[in-house]
Simulated assay, not measured.
Amino acid sequence: MIPTAEGPLTNLVRDVRFNPQLICLIGAECTGKTTLAKALAAHFSSLWVPEHLRSFCDLQGRTPRADEQVLIMRAQFEQEEQAAALARQTACPYVLCDSAPLLTAIYSDFYFSDPSLFECAHVLHTRYALTLLLQPDMPWVSDGLQRDGDPARAAIHARLRHELHAMRHPCIEVSGSGDRRLQAAILAVETLTS
């Protein structure tokens, strides 16, 4: 028996056709992740997932302790999964993820000498269709609790490049400022449909 247009085949086609692609925007502190993620979400009529670390710091009035790093990672993952589910329901093409569990693993190792989150972070990173690595070519600006300065930014950026290269995950580096940075990111995202 052949399914009717309104039967099981319709649901299958809808699920395949509107399966959103997760795009990770990752970079060290003060590289414009949030600004760019919001702009891309607006441009592509897609969803944006904010960085959970920022929300945590705002809510707690402090940076997380070593024992809270795994909670930060889990919360970031859960927010991304919730957004992906909503995107499927609303036929939204992309979910723009401001940061990623990989950055939490790097912070955990950098600040607390704890590399235990890398294995999980690497597995979770395979969910992204594309990673945009934001270059630290913007002026560093103090922003309260999450800002440690240019030396920390450079060190974290080097670790990100190393980890992404080692994982051999699709990654496009985005640089420049303002509209130039946005246009470069738009072109990068458009590679997913070409």
Rank of each mutant, 00 (worst) to 15 (best):
residue 94 Y to F: 14
residue 132 L to A: 01
residue 66 A to V: 12
residue 121 A to N: 02
residue 26 I to M: 12
residue 15 D to M: 13
residue 77 F to N: 10
residue 148 D to R: 10
residue 155 A to Q: 10
residue 168 R to H: 13
residue 76 Q to V: 06
residue 55 S to Y: 08
residue 27 G to P: 01
residue 38 K to L: 09
residue 95 V to M: 09
residue 75 A to H: 10
residue 147 R to F: 10
residue 115 P to C: 07
residue 107 Y to P: 03
residue 24 C to N: 08
residue 33 K to C: 07
residue 110 F to N: 06
residue 171 C to R: 02
residue 109 D to P: 04
residue 71 L to C: 12
residue 40 L to W: 02
residue 2 I to S: 14
residue 9 L to T: 13
residue 153 R to S: 02
residue 42 A to R: 15
residue 89 Q to R: 14
residue 67 D to C: 08
residue 44 F to G: 06
residue 151 P to G: 08
residue 52 H to R: 09
residue 84 A to D: 01
residue 22 L to K: 09
residue 165 H to D: 14
residue 166 A to C: 11
residue 183 Q to E: 14
residue 154 A to F: 11
residue 194 S to H: 15
residue 90 T to M: 11
residue 129 A to F: 07
residue 139 P to G: 10
residue 95 V to A: 05
residue 13 V to Q: 11
residue 187 L to C: 14
residue 62 R to D: 06
residue 31 T to L: 02
residue 40 L to C: 03
residue 36 L to F: 04
residue 165 H to P: 06
residue 94 Y to R: 01
residue 133 L to G: 02
residue 131 T to R: 00
residue 167 M to P: 00
residue 33 K to S: 05
residue 142 S to Q: 15
residue 24 C to H: 04
residue 11 N to F: 14
residue 68 E to K: 05
residue 158 A to S: 11
residue 24 C to G: 02
residue 26 I to L: 14
residue 107 Y to L: 09
residue 15 D to W: 11
residue 4 T to W: 10
residue 169 H to K: 09
residue 11 N to R: 15
residue 79 Q to M: 13
residue 178 G to V: 07
residue 163 E to R: 06
residue 25 L to F: 01
residue 35 T to V: 03
residue 156 I to C: 05
residue 83 A to K: 01
residue 26 I to R: 00
residue 84 A to G: 07
residue 85 A to W: 11
residue 59 L to D: 15
residue 127 R to G: 03
residue 155 A to P: 04
residue 127 R to H: 12
